[in-house]
Design a protein around this nucleic acid. Structure first.
Lengths: 180, 180
DNA sequence: CGAATATTGTTGGTACGTGCAACGAATGGC
DNA sequence: GCCATTCGTTGCACGTACCAACAATATTCG
């Protein structure tokens, strides 16, 4: 325990894992398999994103933020932070970067003097479109090797998984080392 | 173009997107859906990992590295870096962190005086096991809501997708703004 | 063998990502 | 009008990430 990371050690060891579906070997196997596959998937996609996005003079996080601003219209900083699962300070700095590059704008909130309304500029929307097209082209090349039913199933199932995971997280479904 | 990120601008605009499977609206739709779903999935899982792993006084990257060392036995630094899709300097620093915490060790390579052989310590293996169990428990709780066939399919398809993506990346399937 | 070349890992430099705590400004309840 | 709350920014500390340069060792080839 040399460095005490901020997010560190709210409780080091769970006394006993909370309410598991208990003995279901099938479930356990599926979970392990999924865990392994997800880890690989995330590692490789993170790399891909770094590689593909950074050459547009924009970071991956900035790209995600830009995407959110384009897709979900004007957002307050808190909204954006929540959507990205980031601290508002982090979100603020990411917006700093986007603003510096002229890709996003901080506007006044009509009804709340404290809040800011973030939106993408024309240039931001254009860039986002270009990057999106490139990633999509990548994805198409990758998917072309799969049978149509398989790739359709992939998209659907991953969507369901993402939604379920998001719901879990948003429901506070267990922040770090749960305090019950 | 204020800040010139290292990985920036090897070529700003692709002259014309290389060899797409061209006109297949089905494929395009699936790709777009998958893209969207993956983005959400990765965002939420990254958050989960940060939240779950960091409270063990270890960073997400360090955890991935530790996992690789445990699962794949002793590795050289280059091997580890390749596995994690990171620069060797980054990998070296991550190992610094693990070593400082007594979770990994740098050993001499029997056949090559330049190389180091990285391995996890007992403590490292134990920690990795504990974290793995927690993540797995999470995963099980999440999967418990799905029908058995669905969750099995999820695990399998995500595995296939990850493999395909990894193969693409490793084949140099298109580094940033491809130079042809 | 010995010199040139290549590879391995570390370090310096730079910039961004990330969270927490503390802060000023504005809002809202009373 | 005052106090508590909320919004966003900033200070701080550290991790992540790249590239470039370097020392130490291996390898190739004359």
């Amino acid at each position: 325990m040399t460095t005490t990371h901020p997010r560190t050690a709210r409780r080091a060891t769970a006394p006993s894992l909370p309410a598991l579906p208990a003995a279901d070997p099938e479930l356990a196997r599926d979970a392990a398999e999924l865990q392994q596959a997800l880890e690989e998937l995330i590692r490789v996609y993170q790399f891909r994103d770094r590689d593909r996005i950074c050459c547009h003079d924009i970071s991956v996080s900035q790209c995600y933020a830009l995407d959110a601003l384009v897709q979900r219209g004007p957002l307050t900083l808190n909204d954006l932070a929540a959507h990205l699962y980031l601290d508002k300070s982090t979100a603020s700095r990411i917006v700093d970067g986007l603003e510096r590059k002229g890709l996003a704008r901080r506007g006044a909130h009509p009804a709340d003097g404290r809040a800011v309304l973030l939106s993408a500029t024309r240039a931001g929307a254009r860039l986002r479109e270009r990057i999106r097209d490139e990633l999509l082209a990548d994805q198409m090349r990758l998917l072309a090797d799969f049978e149509p039913e398989v790739r359709r199933a992939m998209a659907r199932l991953i969507g369901r998984l993402a939604s379920a995971a998001a719901a879990r997280v948003e429901a506070g479904g267990g922040s770090c080392c749960r305090v019950d």
